[in-house]
């Protein structure tokens, strides 16, 4: 993995061979969030950083066939993934090389890798989920 690339947005994941998304939890409400909010929107209390589950279940997905923003591959897929361990449904890019494997309820695994560019047009790291189990690609 190209470790000198910046994340597409600061503070949303830890890269590396076992990447994790950085969410938050409100100690009062026990509600989890991703991405981390400024304060808990329910009680306005401070929230604490937590690492979210790297395994999820695909709730729904779509494949965009037209020319993409941010030099994302054409076609590419996105979806909403249920992180069942956290009780959260999150939006994510999906593995562009595994588009044909997508299906409702399919188990998916978190990865972080160099895909596309950021708002400054510079190559960057994005989080995505893949249907392929095990190990860094």
């Amino acid at each position: 993995m190209n470790n000198d690339l910046k994340p597409v947005m600061e503070g949303i994941f830890e890269a590396g061979p076992s990447p994790q998304l950085i969410g938050a939890i409100c100690p009062e409400c026990q509600q989890k969030f991703f991405p981390k909010p400024m304060v808990c929107p329910q009680c306005l209390g401070e929230v604490q950083d937590i690492k979210l589950s790297p395994v999820g279940k695909l709730y729904t997905y779509a494949i965009l066939r037209t020319k993409a923003m941010y030099k994302l591959p054409q076609p590419y897929a996105v979806g909403w993934v249920d992180l069942e361990a956290d009780g959260l449904r999150i939006f994510t890019l999906l593995d562009p090389e595994k588009i044909e494997d997508l299906d409702f309820g399919k188990k998916v695994f978190l990865r972080v890798g160099p895909i596309g560019v950021d708002n400054n047009g510079e190559a960057c790291l994005r989080y995505y989920f893949t249907t392929q189990d095990g190990g860094d690609k």
Binding site: T60, L64, A68, N119, Y127
Partner: peptide
């Protein structure tokens, strides 16, 4: 003009959300 999106400061947009796939996800579901 390109595809409409929800604002380039939004994480969803940076992760590939543009309006057509927001609706395609609803259609598929």
């Amino acid at each position: 003009l390109g595809l409409m999106q929800a604002g380039t400061s939004e994480l969803d947009t940076l992760e590939g959300m543009v309006v057509p796939n927001a609706f395609a996800m609803r259609a598929n579901l």
